[in-house]
């Protein structure tokens, strides 16, 4: 009889190619792949076989919105550098084709990540934002492949597509997919913002309120009381002179607290996740302030939401 412990890792090759393994078995099998070229060749062949099954499925045409959303996201979505050619044990590292495409972080021999570590990585969802930070830092400085850097990149790689996509879905949902990220100065800030927006959208208590400015621009507040965060999205918010900024405020019985500044390109959707913590019942206000922002609002709000 076959008990789990008696099985040879090679037996997992089929289930691996079909993505039918859990994390533990995946790690076990990838450790096996790292040691055996024969196993890597088999894994690559079985992966190709699985793809043949996929090519036999009838195509389905996506709605036009899918492409439109994607195209609008490209400019603000960072691209990863090629995997460095770390003293590759053998160029016929064919199995990695299956692995690298999907789960780069756990590719043995390519990233130099031991399976045990890889397993740990895939479990730490809460650190997604931190991962993004470290990843962006690594990408920007373009260090050569120190293993730690690679791991950081790999960690980042594992999640951001979901985060960015969730953000994309959120923006598309609220404002019709015109996200251009024009208010965002750096990738890191953009990632934090996108992540925040995604979290709000994904929260099971996510709420929204809509209003218009005096000039008729449509504005939306989305928030999660549970997470204590919110974001404001405004269509076609006018460009400000360089000596002014838009500033957001949380307003409650204790007064107004600054929640960050931003600017607008004027012809698309400006949005920002607010700094600080939102408390249930807070009002959210938007004012025009001198560049850099003020300690307290100095003008009448052009927008006010009641959460």
């Amino acid at each position: 009889m076959s008990s789990r412990t008696e099985q040879h890792p090679a037996d997992l090759a089929g289930a691996y190619a079909l993505h039918a393994l859990d994390a533990d078995d995946t790690a076990t099998f990838e450790a096996h792949l790292a040691e055996s070229e024969r196993a890597r060749i088999e894994a690559a062949e079985l992966n190709d076989t699985a793809v043949a099954l996929g090519l036999a499925v009838a195509p389905v045409q996506p709605s036009a919105a899918v492409k439109a959303n994607l195209m609008s996201l490209l400019a603000s979505t960072p691209q990863l550098p090629p995997l460095p050619r770390v003293a590759g044990p053998d160029p016929a590292d064919a199995a990695a084709s299956a692995v690298a495409t999907t789960a780069a972080p756990t590719t043995p021999g390519v990233l130099g990540t031991p399976p045990a570590t890889a397993k740990g990585l895939s479990a730490d969802a809460p650190s997604a934002v931190a991962d993004i930070r470290s990843r962006n830092g690594a990408a920007n400085s373009r260090h050569r492949s120190a293993p730690a850097t690679e791991r950081a990149q790999a960690r980042w790689f594992q999640r951001p597509a979901q985060i960015m996509l969730a953000a994309a879905a959120a923006v598309a949902l609220f404002v019709g997919g015109t996200f251009l990220g024009q208010t965002l100065n750096t990738n890191q800030f953009a990632s934090q913002q996108a992540s925040g927006l995604a979290q709000i959208n994904a929260a099971n208590d996510s709420q929204r309120a809509a209003t218009t400015t005096a000039d008729g621009q449509e504005a939306t507040l989305v928030w999660s009381n549970k997470l204590g965060i919110s974001a404001v999205l405004v269509d076609n918010l006018p460009v400000l002179p360089s000596d002014q900024d838009y500033q957001l405020w949380y307003i409650n019985g204790e007064g107004a607290a600054s929640a960050g500044t931003f600017d607008s390109s004027g012809d698309s959707t400006a949005w920002r996740v607010l700094d600080g913590t939102m408390h249930a019942g807070d009002q959210v206000g938007l004012t025009v302030e001198p560049s850099g922002g003020s300690d307290q609002p100095t003008t009448d709000p052009i927008l006010a939401f009641q959460s």
Partner: peptide, 25 residues
């Protein structure tokens, strides 16, 4: 889009790379 630079033609066709990713996702 993000990982196109990590596609290696020597390891198989683009369709294989993409459909593998699709199934995984």
């Amino acid at each position: 889009w993000q990982s196109a630079a990590r596609y290696e033609p020597t390891r198989g066709g683009a369709s294989t790379w993409i459909l593998t990713m699709a199934h995984r996702r």
